[in-house]
Computed example of a mutant assay.
Amino acid sequence: MTIEFQDTERRSSDALAEVIATIKGERVTLRDILAQMGESGLLLLCGLLSLPFLVPVSIPGVSTVFGIGIVLIGIAITLNRLPWLPSRLADKPLDAEKLVPVLEKGLGILRRFDRFFRVRMHALTDGRVVNRVNGMALTGAGVLLMMPLSIIPFSNTLPGVAILLLSAGISQRDGLVVAGGYLMIALTLVYFAVLAWLAVSAGQSVLGG
């Protein structure tokens, strides 16, 4: 069973508040939460996965594992639905009484971050078509993150910043932040092109010498 995103215009904090308000009874499942959170939940996870790369040099191997997760999230957003999840995981009952306080703490943190964002430049955040394009951008940034260049300074940092800006901007409906994410993707491509040119030039010098 897949869950299609029904609302692509809610901020993550608003989506989480709705989840908390609609949790009823003593039990709730991951599928219930994902159905309510939609892409907002995936974007939050995407942002968290990008955090380890906000330093000049990342730990080798981590970029591949986390990059795969980011690529899968980007694909899910592009396709406008969550991927298939095992029923054992998606339908496992969770204790709502213990879960709600944790979610409320998370909501408090998100509300604090809201003051740093503004709903603006709707052309880059609103609508299904735009979100599909943004999902493809996230996917591409995840692929750039997975490039085997982790020993080179900033090779993971640039796409990591792009992923963080895209995920935060999309989830908070801040088009200016999303535009910053696209700019970082462009800078990453330029940086990788320069590295490739230097590598080819060095190879030619060695062969020519």
Score class of each variant (00 low, 15 high):
residue 8 T to C: 06
residue 80 N to S: 10
residue 132 R to E: 00
residue 15 A to F: 09
residue 73 I to C: 02
residue 68 I to Q: 05
residue 170 I to E: 00
residue 154 F to N: 06
residue 132 R to L: 01
residue 14 D to C: 01
residue 187 L to F: 14
residue 43 L to H: 08
residue 105 K to E: 11
residue 32 D to I: 00
residue 178 V to P: 03
residue 147 M to K: 01
residue 52 P to V: 10
residue 149 L to I: 11
residue 186 A to Q: 06
residue 194 V to G: 02
residue 118 R to P: 00
residue 172 Q to G: 00
residue 75 I to P: 00
residue 48 L to Q: 09
residue 88 R to A: 15
residue 81 R to E: 03
residue 62 V to F: 13
residue 143 V to Y: 01
residue 205 S to M: 13
residue 28 V to G: 04
residue 89 L to D: 08
residue 19 V to N: 00
residue 173 R to Y: 08
residue 28 V to F: 03
residue 157 T to P: 00
residue 188 T to I: 00
residue 82 L to T: 05
residue 161 V to I: 15
residue 114 D to N: 15
residue 199 A to M: 08
residue 34 L to E: 11
residue 133 V to R: 10
residue 65 V to G: 07
residue 148 P to F: 07
residue 14 D to G: 08
residue 16 L to R: 00
residue 140 G to M: 09
residue 8 T to Y: 07
residue 74 G to A: 04
residue 140 G to I: 12
residue 46 C to I: 01
residue 208 G to Y: 11
residue 12 S to Q: 12
residue 116 F to E: 02
residue 201 S to D: 14
residue 133 V to K: 09
residue 141 A to Q: 01
residue 62 V to R: 02
residue 70 I to L: 03
residue 35 A to L: 02
residue 148 P to S: 05
residue 194 V to H: 07
residue 25 G to D: 09
residue 108 G to P: 13
residue 32 D to A: 13
residue 128 R to N: 05
residue 189 L to G: 02
residue 91 D to L: 10
residue 159 P to Q: 04
residue 53 F to R: 04
residue 12 S to A: 15
residue 62 V to W: 12
residue 105 K to Y: 10
residue 134 N to M: 00
residue 77 I to H: 01
residue 173 R to G: 05
residue 6 Q to Y: 02
residue 62 V to M: 14
residue 124 L to G: 01
residue 171 S to D: 06
residue 151 I to K: 07
residue 23 I to M: 09
residue 184 M to A: 12
residue 174 D to K: 03
residue 48 L to E: 07
residue 30 L to F: 12
residue 186 A to P: 08
residue 49 L to E: 02
residue 91 D to S: 05
residue 50 S to D: 02
residue 5 F to Y: 15
residue 151 I to E: 08
residue 198 L to W: 13
residue 43 L to A: 09
residue 42 L to K: 02
residue 150 S to T: 14
residue 51 L to C: 11
residue 207 L to C: 01
residue 101 P to R: 05
residue 107 L to P: 07
residue 139 T to N: 07
residue 31 R to L: 08
residue 165 L to C: 13
residue 28 V to M: 09
residue 89 L to W: 15
residue 191 Y to H: 14
residue 204 Q to Y: 12
residue 181 G to N: 06
residue 158 L to V: 14
residue 16 L to C: 02
residue 110 L to E: 07
residue 61 G to F: 11
residue 30 L to K: 12
residue 167 S to R: 05
residue 192 F to L: 12
residue 209 G to C: 02
residue 181 G to Y: 05
residue 115 R to T: 11
residue 119 V to F: 10
residue 130 V to I: 14
residue 187 L to K: 01
residue 124 L to V: 03
residue 114 D to F: 11
residue 32 D to Y: 14
residue 44 L to T: 01
residue 125 T to I: 04
residue 13 S to K: 01
residue 173 R to A: 10
residue 173 R to E: 13
residue 99 L to T: 02
residue 87 S to Q: 14
residue 117 F to N: 04
residue 149 L to C: 04
residue 208 G to V: 03
residue 71 V to R: 04
residue 164 L to D: 00
residue 96 A to D: 03
